[in-house]
Design a protein around this nucleic acid. Structure first.
Lengths: 352, 352
DNA sequence: TAAAGGAATCGAATCGATTCGATCGATTCG
DNA sequence: CGAATCGATCGAATCGATTCGATTCCTTTA
């Protein structure tokens, strides 16, 4: 038996194709990439040889080494996939992001910042990174990425040297929501906050909540409420979900000590959960309790939720554009977004 | 000016670190990877040199070329991100998938099979690919990937040579749902189907629907209904969403010619939409119309939807394990899943 | 004390392509 | 007709690491 049988088993490479076509590797490369003059006949011969050897085109790994680009943009999220994608805002952002990065042919690599497995973030072949909803290990992650010389874009994170920020005016928006309740005449309001720190355990908000708070978003939105109402009772949810909102609502609404007439939730999902809690407790929304959300997620719930609508897709787009700019050697600027107040039917003056 | 200024601007590489530490590149490599005996003092010297040069560790691009592995698993979905993630089942699958692939330190690369930009799927540096909810360009995509010698796992796709299948017994499950309605006494049922073909335009189901149908899932589930009821009227939704279900429901329920007493929806989202439609038309569920869904997504809707619960996370896990197996050189087998009937409060005998 | 074994390190080949500069004809211009 | 030009092709260097098989230099053991 000679080796001719039906071709070696190992994958063919450009050199093999070139050899079969009777040209040099450089010419074969040109034939594939089209970056240089190649006679039509030659190109055809190379393509034929490729076909014959069942060659699937240049190896992306080698290409990315040579070119110094992999065509991959990392998306880092703090939580596990399931949790991160439960939030419609994250999905919307991802969509906007995919839109922009897709335009330059880049794919999105999902990475979670989860504790130990810092592996991914430290060693994935990416050209740039977008941090979404990160908080816990943010400093470390950024340090690691910066050391690798990676372009970094962070959405709604505290500003950091060398990181392009995409922000939302969380504090002002939250204050607007609070003011709405105040103007309706509410004085006893409570907040249902997004997770403030790593543990993600639900807990009653204490006055020293700022200590140990790592989530920029939750912090700013709480501050917004304080700007209007001063210290208020609150409950920190374990995650942004209807269930978590339900638990928070049950806790706050069934406590005689607090008895809020208005609840400010830091996400629409939480708000819907709070409404469910009110229903369970026999309280009417908005007659007995006013509920205001945040996001503008348009969740199907039978209510038209009063909320602060944020441009999530645009945030993603802005992040994508920033990435594209950096990869093109341009220096992108920071981008800030604003929310729009949406008056629904879940807020009303308190029952006198 | 000499070049010593404060270091060259270009990123340092292993060779530079090795040079500074006074060892060979091979030793430096060992120091980083820990794959071989290195004196503690030497390792320390190398690490110090790295620190000094601000070296962020071995370049993943070079590593992946040398090792022939990139640590990236591609996830191909037909639709754009926003649409794909609107479906809770996809998210659940992704979660299961991330779980398993994360265990070997692999990241998930999101790719959409969208028309022109076949770029991603053809040239991304992946070690394996999982096809989720693909249909339209499936044949082509698989051909392309196969040529690249890529391990392929496909979830709920028609079986193909060299592709590890993860399946759900859609036809049987759908038949079970249909039989439930039949046993309750329904004779006039209609189906709300998932998109059957590329266009994603909503349309009334005609008797020759099979022609041109490319979606395996939708097809099998329709066949399941036919197995029990024969040809029934139906409506093909544009996507799996509450809105699309609402439109479908309005169409079917307001047509005097059809007047179904039971509706089988191919997803829970569609089912909820149908229920909303019934409500809008003043019909009670389940008194006037029985509605049964598919998925077991536990969507908050005020109803306890009767549905076929599918193990979505497990499907994702199975796909992930198949990938891990293939990358480890093992040959994974096909995996099949079954749904579990869940009796809720949205189905009842027809009003006599 | 010589032989054997082991730890630490190094050299060189390799992974698979891209790309710059050089070469070689053939065509065109003066 | 010689020179300048242009198109096509090739060689060789390069990207940044990993890894296999030496090569040293010590420490044990017979």
């Amino acid at each position: 038996m000679t080796t001719e049988a039906s071709g070696g088993r190992d994958k063919p490479n450009l050199a093999a194709v070139a050899a079969l076509a009777g040209v040099s590797a450089s010419t074969a490369s040109l034939a594939f990439s089209g970056a240089g003059p190649v006679a039509e006949a030659t190109r055809a011969r190379v393509l034929a040889a490729a076909e014959q050897l069942n060659y699937g085109g240049p190896d992306p790994r080698a290409q990315s080494l040579r070119r110094g680009r992999s065509g991959i943009v990392g998306v880092v999220m703090e939580e596990r996939v399931r949790d991160a994608f439960r939030d419609p805002m994250n999905i919307a952002m991802l969509d906007g992001l995919a839109d922009e990065t897709g335009a330059i042919g880049a794919g999105l690599l999902l990475l979670t910042e989860t504790g130990d497995e810092r592996l991914g973030i430290a060693s994935a072949p990416m050209d740039a990174v977008v941090l979404i909803g990160c908080s816990t290990g943010l400093e470390e992650s950024v340090a690691l990425l910066r050391q690798r010389g990676m372009p970094i874009v962070a959405v709604e994170a505290p500003s950091m040297e060398g990181v392009v920020p995409i922000t939302l005016d969380n504090r002002v928006s939250s204050a607007t929501a609070a003011r709405h309740l105040k103007e309706l005449g509410h004085t006893l309001v409570a907040t249902v906050a997004l997770p403030l720190e790593q543990s993600h355990q639900p807990w009653r908000l204490s006055t020293d909540w700022r200590l140990g708070a790592t989530s920029e978003v939750a912090t700013q939105r709480l501050l917004g409420v304080e700007d209007v109402f001063g210290t208020t009772p609150g409950y920190v949810a374990s995650t942004s979900s209807i269930d978590a909102g339900l638990r928070a609502g049950l806790d706050l609404l069934s406590d005689a000590e607090i008895r809020p007439t208005g609840i400010i939730a830091q996400s629409d999902l939480l708000a819907i959960g709070v409404i469910r809690a009110a229903e369970q407790l026999g309280l009417g929304v908005p007659e007995d309790v006013s509920v205001i959300g945040f996001d503008g997620a348009r969740i199907d719930s039978g209510y038209d939720l009063t909320t602060m609508v944020q441009p999530a897709v645009d945030k993603g787009r802005a992040a994508g554009r920033a990435v594209v700019d950096m990869l093109a050697g341009r220096k992108p600027g920071a981008v800030s977004f604003t929310t729009v107040f949406h008056l629904g039917n879940t807020t009303a003056p308190p029952r006198s």
